[in-house]
Write a protein that binds this DNA or RNA. Structure first.
Lengths: 209, 209
DNA sequence: CCTATTATGGAACGATCGGTATAGCAACTT
DNA sequence: AAGTTGCTATACCGATCGTTCCATAATAGG
């Protein structure tokens, strides 16, 4: 019933029963790639267990059903793939925030170990009937980041990082849109060179410091 | 076998047999909404015929299999939903091109009859195993528009629409990315008011005329 | 050794997938 | 009337869907 064995794992203490024979995070990383490329509906259990290198029953025993597996994957995704977003918020000026966010996004697309595009976008633009909870879960994460960015840019407005003629709300939403647009472009097979041009051009027209 | 009855339709000539009793484009529009919201893999035949108001056999007799149906839908999509993109290319300056493209995208999101976001993006960011041809077909359309936009901005550079310090290639790719990002935001439930702010802020920082 | 507990692989579950076939009626043309 | 096509309903096909069951393997504490 309970798939949460993390407490025993992190302590490294001896647990009764047969020990797990696979790397939990490595398996989740493999599942992440499948969800990333094919989407929740397009990622069948057969495809998942093939990529993860475990059997059907092991998947259900270790991670619960498909929805629970996806939530475990999202945890790993935010922990390993979107950490740079939090760093971006800590940058001293609005321009530096934009620069860090966009360069971080660019770096992620350069990493050959991860698929192109964004797993978040994949699950926010469409969802199969019955997968409404997955869609809602992911879009909520999008709302979270938009709120964080808005909050940061309201501070930037108070700091005078950009002319008062610019709306911090507009700049925040535009930055998020530019980031998402960059990720869509990456999904569409746009070259790294062109993606870099998008970022540098955007930063060139960005107002203020 | 042959689902192409358009030649008889457009001529209005008398054909033997019972005439079609449903509106072909209306049925395709209903199918378009299903593909748009749920994606190709998430749009089951049962869901499609339910939305289109026709029977299973009629769907196959009239449109061919699922892939053919999708291609018919894409025809309608480009004919009715993306016509403003061609208009945008005809605008006299680079700024006007950007303005027309973004405002057109915004108008499409305001239309309550069509789903939020973009059917193109839905099918370019992910695809189920076996649906590679659908993915390729859609991403090819994306490449087409990027090429068109690049071509237009190279002309704009020659016209001196923006400072020579800006790369037309970068501006073209950025504009496409901004448009896609706007559509992702719309999919994520961002309000029309906020979408409008994204557009106005982007146009405010856009260089040149 | 035993028992308890957990991990694992293979088989099987009912449901749904895309697609086809059949039968029969409906609505038109010649 | 005869011929042709449109459409619905139903049943069916093999394949795949997500999920569960079960026997077995591998460890722990006793």
């Amino acid at each position: 019933m309970n798939s949460d064995t993390s407490s025993a794992e992190q302590a490294g203490q001896k647990t009764p029963g047969r020990p797990r024979q696979f790397d939990r995070d490595a398996a989740l990383a493999a599942a992440m790639r499948v969800f990333w490329v094919h989407g929740y509906a397009g990622a069948s259990i057969a495809t998942l267990i093939d990529a993860m290198g475990i059997s059907r029953a092991t998947l259900y025993a270790s991670f619960g059903d498909k929805e629970h597996l996806f939530r475990h994957v999202m945890d790993l995704y935010e922990r390993e793939k979107t950490a740079y977003m939090l760093d971006a918020l800590d940058q001293p000026t609005a321009r530096r925030v934009a620069e860090h966010l966009l360069r971080g996004t660019l770096d992620l697309q350069t990493d050959t170990a991860t698929p192109k595009g964004s797993m978040g976008i994949v699950h926010s633009v469409s969802y199969a009937p019955g997968d409404e909870r997955i869609h809602e879960f992911v879009t909520e994460r999008g709302r979270f980041w938009r709120a964080k960015l808005l909050e940061r840019f309201e501070q930037a407005a108070r700091d005078g990082d950009f002319p008062a003629t610019y709306d911090p709300h507009g700049l925040a939403m535009l930055l998020k849109s530019a980031t998402d647009g960059l990720l869509v472009a990456a999904s569409s097979g746009v070259s790294e060179q062109d993606l870099d041009k998008v970022v540098s051009t955007f930063l060139k027209m960005w107002p203020g410091r």
